[in-house]
Write a protein that binds this DNA or RNA. Structure first.
Lengths: 156, 156
DNA sequence: GCATAGGTTGAGAAGATTTCGCATGCATGT
DNA sequence: ACATGCATGCGAAATCTTCTCAACCTATGC
């Protein structure tokens, strides 16, 4: 993997620098991992894939915690209940997650939720800073070899 | 806490029985805990509160895993990254979570997402079984004593 | 370009969390 | 009442996550 700054990493660089947080080689690698992996990946998976590139497990934990707190990574729910993260999609893009194999496909929500957001701020007094819409399904491959899970979901 | 079957527990009873899963005293207590606690609670919190009622930690883990797989409990994201669960809201109700103290307020989404769901099934070939919309904010109390968190969120 | 200050990293230990195994217990059906 | 099949509880085991601290980078200023 070349060490040049990719455009994507450059984008995140601006975010971190604007907050006075150094963009280190390790953090960039963790970010690029989630940007390109194309699925909701666990911390263990990220750590395993990044170890050869010289990123320690502890650093992966720290970077993911930081990105998550910044809102750049988002934890998503999968059937098994494992802690999986996926790169947060700015704009009105949302993840469609396969609950089985965790493949993630992005989609653009047609509807603007800012209206809802305004309504909620008035009704509840909360200061709303974001929302997250996840859609769950089974990808074509996983529909085939359907889970032999003991309990099948109540939801449809 | 009386051991009579509450209406809420009765509701879940129907769900479990329809799947041949016994509704035990412990499972009912775990469910009622999440129904009434009014916030996104960690497993440790549930276990601590239920221990006096005679529910072991291991059972709390098992019950939560089962409810989550059934779609009756949903894991939500809070700032700190802890694993928190909240009772899934059937219909078009969604949680508004305080990212700081984890208080949960429910709201009814005006917009029906079934249209979006249909569109996605066509476009992606996924078999969609559900969605989850979480809105994050800070509740009035937490806006005051604003977090001294090291990094503040990128999101608005 | 080079030094500096301050935050970051790596390795392994320490600390939490989560799961397991097995004996016991409860409920259902005969 | 008896047998059967899960569920439960306890404690241990396995796993995951955080911490400690010296050495090392990164961004910045000279």
């Amino acid at each position: 993997m070349p060490l040049s700054i990719t455009p994507e990493a450059d984008g995140i660089s601006a975010v971190l620098i604007s907050k006075g947080i150094p963009l280190t080689r390790q953090r960039r690698l963790v970010w690029e991992y989630y940007l390109h992996v194309g699925k909701a990946a666990t911390i263990a998976e990220a750590a395993a894939d990044l170890q050869p590139a010289g990123v320690s497990q502890a650093t992966v934990y720290r970077a993911i915690a930081m990105f998550a707190e910044l809102g750049l990574l988002h934890r998503v729910q999968v059937r098994s209940g494992e802690a999986c993260y996926t790169a947060a999609l700015l704009g009105h893009r949302h993840p469609l997650v396969c609950g089985e194999c965790r493949r993630v496909v992005e989609f653009v929500g047609d509807d603007d939720l800012s209206e809802l957001q305004r309504r909620l701020e008035l009704e509840t007094g909360f200061m709303i800073y974001g929302h997250h819409l996840e859609v769950y399904g089974l990808c074509p491959q996983c529909v085939e070899k359907r889970s032999t899970s003991r309990w099948s979901s109540v939801l449809r």
